[in-house]
Structure formats: structure tokens, C-alpha cells
Amino acid sequence: MRPTLTHLALHVPDLDACIAFYGEFCGMRVIHQREGKGSRIVWMAEPGKEHAFIFVIMPGGQQRNLASDDYSHFGFAVDSRERVDAIADKAREAGCLVWPPRDEPYPVGYYCGVRDPAGNYLEFSYGQPLGPGAEAMPIP
């Protein structure tokens, strides 16, 4: 069997703030939590993807201070340009918008960038050959 990417584990400075953020902006929900290694460990997933890919978040991390032109990010696909705009508006209101919506040539598409409470960047995109419905799209 080949290796399969199943999760991303992050130490974060404020666990509860990150749980709320990923629920609000990404629609993820807590699917498991436990006390382990002296702290609370939380698993979050998108509904329907609980057995495919999760975030494991734990307290104790350092705040990340990425530059606005640092494109390290977690990528989330959405179903329309309007959804990208709505997320950008919500992030602007919350003070966590990093990259306003913009168009880039295929395969990048239309996207915006948002900062989570730990300082990680998230990209919300439409029009990439990734995510639901992209099976029919060619990857250059």
C-alpha cells in the first residue's frame, strides 16, 4: 500500500479560539477529543471526511508571524466566486483577511487568504482542479 495523507497535527497557542475559527470559517467540527500527554487533543474534520483527512490540534504552540507575501497555507475549495467573496468579507470584518480576493491564471483560480488565531494562513479558492467536482478538470 502506498502512503496516504490522513491528517495534519498542529500545536496552537489558543486551542479554543482555533476550534471556533475552523468551525466558523471552514465548517469543520470536533469529531474526537481526549486528554493526552498532559493536555487536551482535538480532532476536527469536514462533515463526511472524518475518515479521510483531519486536523489534530493541541495547545502549546507558538504564534506564527507570517509575512503577507508568504504563501504557506492550508487550501480549502469552495463552490463559487461568491463564496470566496463572502469568506473574504467575513474575514475582513473579523480582522483576519490577509489576501483580498484575486484572480490568477489556471490552475490557481479565484482565491482569498485568511489568518487563523495561531497565525497560519488559509486559502479559500474557486476554479482549481482540486476538491469536489474537480475530477473532470485536467491538471496541467
Rank of each mutant, 00 (worst) to 15 (best):
M1I: 07
R2V: 11
R2Q: 12
R2G: 05
P3S: 08
P3V: 14
T4S: 12
L5I: 13
H7F: 10
H7I: 01
L8Y: 07
L8N: 11
A9S: 15
L10F: 14
L10S: 07
V12M: 01
V12N: 00
V12L: 01
P13S: 05
D14Y: 01
L15N: 02
L15W: 04
A17P: 07
I19L: 08
A20R: 15
A20M: 03
F21V: 03
F21Q: 01
Y22V: 04
G23V: 03
E24D: 15
C26N: 00
G27W: 13
G27V: 13
G27A: 12
M28V: 00
M28H: 02
M28D: 00
R29C: 04
R29F: 02
V30M: 11
H32Y: 14
R34S: 10
R34F: 02
G36I: 02
K37L: 12
K37M: 14
G38I: 14
S39R: 15
R40K: 15
I41M: 13
I41N: 05
V42K: 02
W43T: 10
M44W: 05
G48C: 06
E50L: 08
E50N: 10
H51Y: 08
F53G: 03
F55L: 15
F55V: 04
V56E: 15
I57A: 04
I57T: 07
M58N: 09
P59K: 06
P59M: 10
G60R: 12
G61F: 07
Q62R: 13
Q63K: 14
R64M: 13
R64A: 08
N65M: 11
N65W: 09
A67M: 12
A67L: 14
S68E: 13
S68P: 05
D69Q: 09
D69R: 10
D69E: 13
D70K: 08
D70Y: 11
D70L: 06
Y71Q: 12
S72M: 13
H73Q: 15
H73N: 15
F74S: 08
F74G: 02
G75W: 09
G75V: 08
F76I: 15
A77Y: 05
V78I: 14
D79M: 10
D79Q: 15
S80N: 12
S80L: 12
S80W: 13
S80E: 12
E82Q: 15
E82V: 04
D85Y: 01
A86G: 03
I87M: 09
I87R: 05
A88W: 04
A88S: 10
D89C: 00
K90R: 15
A91H: 06
R92Y: 04
L97C: 08
V98E: 02
W99P: 00
W99H: 14
W99E: 06
P101K: 09
P101D: 11
R102L: 11
R102W: 03
E104H: 12
P105E: 13
P105S: 10
P105K: 09
G109C: 02
Y110L: 05
C112S: 08
C112I: 09
V114H: 02
V114S: 01
V114R: 01
D116I: 05
D116S: 07
D116E: 10
A118G: 13
A118Y: 07
G119L: 06
N120V: 00
Y121C: 01
L122P: 00
F124R: 03
S125L: 04
G127K: 04
G127T: 07
Q128D: 00
P129Q: 01
G131A: 09
A134R: 00
A134T: 11
A136I: 07
A136V: 12
A136C: 01
A136R: 11
A136E: 07
P140S: 01
P140C: 01
